[in-house]
């Protein structure tokens, strides 16, 4: 059945998904807020960039990350001059890659929630002398809560399901970059179908229940 390699991959995958989801909620929220409310002409282009990972094959993202994070790439130059070394083949590198890969899954639900709420609640808050920041935390965020839940669940699940990007820039290092999807791929390629079934079947169950939870959760809100 499953050996320590498989469990290490499972643990790593959940660590990666957790760190990535937290970062996405933290940095994706202001971005979603801006996208929902701005009248800037940059709204369209920025929105399109955020949505890019939805349509690009992960291999494109992985390939360009490998090049740009490499010693001759712009991100590689930056991380090296900051004394951080190079990102490919490292856990932080995977976090950066997963962040980009799952960005639309987190930003878009939050943005939709902010848009659906409209101007009125914030105007009301302003008439009650709430500062914009105060209104954001005490009015906007509580009202957009379902959007945040959807964003967190989708961001987490999508990161767990990540494969192509990690394969391209991870280097398949046990405990560092060998996530479950890569481990499944190796098991299948090596014709170790029993372990592959356990891992792959586990992924199907996990994904199903996450999506089911999301459905039930959405119905309850209605």
């Amino acid at each position: 059945m499953l050996d320590s390699d498989d469990f290490a991959a499972i643990r790593l995958t959940f660590e990666l998904a957790t760190v990535t989801t937290l970062l996405l909620l933290l940095l994706g929220t202001p971005l979603a807020w801006w996208l929902a409310r701005t009248r800037s002409r940059w709204r369209g282009p920025v929105g399109a960039v955020v949505a890019l990972p939805l349509v690009l094959p992960p291999t494109v993202l992985g390939f360009y990350l490998l090049i740009t994070m490499g010693p001759d790439g712009p991100i590689g130059h930056l991380t090296q001059s900051l004394g951080l070394g190079l990102l490919p083949f490292t856990f932080p590198g995977l976090v950066v890659a997963s962040f980009l890969y799952s960005l639309p899954f987190v930003v878009q639900p939050i943005q939709n929630a902010f848009e659906a709420m409209g101007e009125r609640p914030l105007e009301m808050a302003a008439t009650l002398r709430a500062s914009p920041l105060d209104a954001f935390f005490t009015v906007a965020i509580p009202l957009a809560k379902p959007g945040f839940w959807t964003a967190a669940i989708l961001g987490f699940a999508h990161t767990v399901g990540e494969f192509g990007v990690v394969l391209m820039m991870g280097g398949n290092i046990p405990g560092v970059t060998r996530v479950v999807s890569v481990q499944i791929y190796s098991r299948v390629e090596a014709m170790e179908y029993i372990q592959a079934h356990w891992l792959a079947g586990g992924m199907v169950f996990f994904s199903f229940f996450v999506l089911l939870a999301l459905q039930i959760f959405r119905r309850d809100r209605r």
Partner: peptide, 13 residues
């Protein structure tokens, strides 16, 4: 070690 899934990917690294 960093491992490529195949020899072409290894070359790319």
């Amino acid at each position: 070690f960093v491992q490529g899934e195949n020899i072409a990917q290894t070359y790319q690294f």
